[in-house]
């Protein structure tokens, strides 16, 4: 598999369920009510509970990691992850990841977009190095 600039990563569609939103929030020790209590989330002006940032970070790295294991090799290391956050990821929606290699060499930089029906939930830039 190639890591050349312009290489695209296979898309990944992740259905968002309340269980996913809540279990990941708790597994990342983020107990803010907007990530598990719909009534309170709506009280804050939100449509529903929504995904927390630590989970977005984890999912982006899972997406890149699954590709990197084949493309770079099992010894790759994630050295950095910069997220720009956009539309909230609500239960019932689908989070679709796509990505492409924007820099290749000693460092591989992958631009990732995680889109939901409202627009881009996250634009990420993940830096991967081979160990």
């Amino acid at each position: 598999m190639s890591t050349a600039t312009g290489t695209t990563l296979p898309a990944w569609e992740l259905p968002l369920t309340p269980t996913l939103i809540v279990s990941t929030a708790i597994a990342t020790r983020d107990f803010q009510d907007v990530h598990h209590d719909r009534d309170l989330a709506q009280g804050h002006g939100s449509k529903d509970i929504f995904m927390n940032i630590l989970t977005t970070t984890g999912l982006v790295q899972r997406y890149v990691g699954e590709w990197a294991r084949d493309a770079i090799g099992p010894d790759f290391r994630i050295a950095g992850c910069a997220l720009r956050l956009g539309a909230p990821a609500y239960p019932g929606d689908t989070l679709t990841f796509s990505g492409s290699v924007t820099e290749s060499g000693e460092l591989t930089v992958i631009d990732v977009v995680g889109a939901v029906s409202l627009g881009n939930h996250v634009n990420a830039q993940v830096t991967v190095v081979a160990r």
């Binding site: 996913l20 279990s23 990941t24 708790i26 597994a27 990342t28 020790r29 983020d30 630590l54 989970t55 970070t57 984890g58 999912l59 982006v60 790295q61 899972r62 990691g65 699954e66 294991r69 099992p74 290391r77 994630i78 992850c81």
Partner: peptide, 29 residues
């Protein structure tokens, strides 16, 4: 392990002593 299960991460390194980088913030929540 809780985190791997929730996120769906399967990288074998994370079941043999190495922490996922994405968990950096989790430890100090």
């Amino acid at each position: 392990n809780n985190w791997l299960e929730a996120i769906g991460e399967t990288d074998p390194r994370y079941t043999s002593g190495e922490a996922p980088p994405a968990m950096a913030q989790v430890w100090t929540m």
